[in-house]
């Protein structure tokens, strides 16, 4: 929309003889017609509830993200679903324990998933780099550390293909730093009692830390799953201090 407006404007400008150049145009339009896009503009959609975790509200292409803590796999699947869309593929490498049913519950399409056996120690680079050529999202959970050579190869392919690599061990086996690390922490389960009910809703907190643009620590509270869907934002649990001193407008609870 903006782009079309810009074309009309610049065309009109030439026709009318006002060769004032692009500088005279609305900055909004300038933004839209600039020939280069910076990496922070190449964002992948994430569920709305997770967007406060990311510096520009979405996951950057070519990033490596570590995810750890209970429910990390479910969160990862849910986080990547919007960016995969209808046709995107996800590969899960060397993670025999992950339950794909949990992924399906948060919207992952089972006909767009490849499950790859754990490669031998020296083959991680070859396997992940090959996968990144065709698959948008690769999830790995290595049990032993990845060598420097493999890591460099994977990083280079990731930059080139603009894919996303997720480390479900939180990056513990990766020789260098990750762009971002997410840590899941379950706060409470609802629906379960003493011998009655069942695990129904989970309230959890996800903390993000990273480097460069993502250096500032951020966190969100989530329902995963919650009463309104598999992955929705939750209100922060009030701390005891807040309750005591009236975080909600001075009224004592």
């Amino acid at each position: 929309m903006l782009l079309r407006d810009a074309n009309i404007c610049s065309y009109a400008g030439v026709v009318n003889g006002h060769a004032t150049g692009l500088a005279a145009l609305d900055p909004r339009i300038l933004e839209a017609v600039r020939p280069t896009t910076l990496s922070n503009e190449q964002l992948l959609d994430v569920p709305e509830a997770l967007s406060p975790l990311f510096p520009w509200g979405g996951l950057q292409r070519g990033w490596q993200v570590g995810v750890s803590g209970p429910g990390a796999w479910t969160l990862t699947a849910g986080m990547m679903v919007p960016s995969l869309g209808d046709e995107g593929w996800m590969a899960v490498v060397g993670a025999p324990l992950f339950n794909l049913v949990a992924g399906a519950e948060v919207g992952l399409r089972m006909d767009r998933v490849l499950v790859v056996d754990t490669p031998p120690a020296g083959q991680w680079g070859t396997v992940v780099a090959a996968l990144l050529e065709a698959v948008q999202v690769v999830v790995i959970c290595p049990s032993s550390s990845i060598g420097n050579r493999d890591a460099r190869r994977i990083a280079a392919r990731l930059r080139e293909q603009r894919g996303t690599l997720l480390h479900l061990d939180g990056g513990a086996t990766w020789p260098s730093g990750l762009d971002m690390k997410l840590t899941c922490q379950t706060q409470e389960w609802e629906g379960i009692g003493q011998g009655n009910g069942y695990l129904r809703y989970r309230r959890m907190k996800v903390e993000a830390a990273g480097r460069r643009s993502a250096a500032q620590p951020r966190s969100v509270s989530l329902w995963m799953p919650g009463p309104d869907g598999p992955l929705t934002a939750a209100q922060e649990l009030a701390t005891v201090t807040e309750l005591r001193y009236g975080a909600w407008g001075g009224e004592s609870p």
Partner: peptide
């Protein structure tokens, strides 16, 4: 194509689908 390549590296049953 990628799957075929990985099968070459890791063995025929190494890449699976759910």
């Amino acid at each position: 194509r990628t799957v075929a390549r990985l099968q070459g590296i890791l063995g025929a049953d190494s890449v699976r689908v759910p």
